[in-house]
């Protein structure tokens, strides 16, 4: 008999996911990715599906504080990990509520990276944005922890901390595609939020001519 209840299948399992500080008990098809579990089962749709192949970065979230692609891992394998989605990166309630057409996305406090994306217009269509923001939050931590990138000049373990230049940001953020091409303002936003030395002033105003 065909059933809609995945628990009736021998290919499903009961798991507990820790997401944004809350525990969720659910039964998932073993084939379910973490991305689909969040989106289809927990109604946490801020994490986007852009390619389902680990090629675009739209589903980037934080697993135990490190950036990770939700489409490339199975939900059953995420049990016991601390998962933070875009809905959970800001203060309480930042990503909750807000009906269609609403001009607010909830009233909670924004993460500094979110605030910078807003002010520098670090997005256009917004679909890659949750992934860009989660990626940037973790990337800033990686850099602060001294992790080098492919464009870091001095990679000796004893090297002094390298500045988070725009070139470093671009290299480290390259797993997150933005087809609208908002890269310039994303890099400005990330640099501003990171408090990097190259910090730009504010978003430009007006035309020049």
């Amino acid at each position: 008999m065909i059933t809609s209840d995945p628990t009736a299948s021998q290919t499903a399992g009961a798991i507990i996911l820790h997401v944004n500080g809350e525990k969720h008990a659910l039964t998932v098809d073993h084939r379910t990715t973490l991305l689909d579990a969040l989106r289809e089962r927990l109604d946490l749709t801020g994490t986007k599906k852009g390619c389902d192949h680990g090629q675009c970065g739209a589903c980037t979230l934080l697993v135990d504080g490190r950036r990770s692609l939700a489409c490339l891992q199975l939900a059953v394998a995420a049990e016991g990990r601390e998962i933070t989605t875009i809905e959970g990166v800001g203060g309480s309630g930042a990503g909750q509520g807000a009906g269609p057409g609403s001009e607010s996305g909830g009233q909670g406090e924004l993460h500094p990276v979110q605030q910078a994306f807003l002010e520098f217009d670090g997005f256009q269509c917004g679909y890659c944005t949750p992934g860009q923001i989660c990626s940037a939050i973790a990337m800033i931590e990686e850099h602060a922890a001294g992790w080098p990138s492919a464009v870091t000049d001095d990679v000796h373990p004893e090297a002094a901390p390298q500045p988070l230049t725009p070139e470093e940001i671009r290299e480290r953020m390259s797993g997150n595609l933005c087809r609208c091409g908002a890269y310039m303002s994303i890099v400005q936003a990330v640099g501003y939020a990171a408090g990097a030395r190259h910090t730009h002033s504010g978003p430009d105003e007006g035309s020049a001519a």
Partner: peptide, 17 residues
């Protein structure tokens, strides 16, 4: 220059596509 009216929704994941 004005930031997007739906900007907060988009940066918090609240915007529903």
């Amino acid at each position: 220059a004005r930031t997007r009216v739906e900007g907060r929704e988009k940066i918090t994941g609240a915007a529903r596509y």
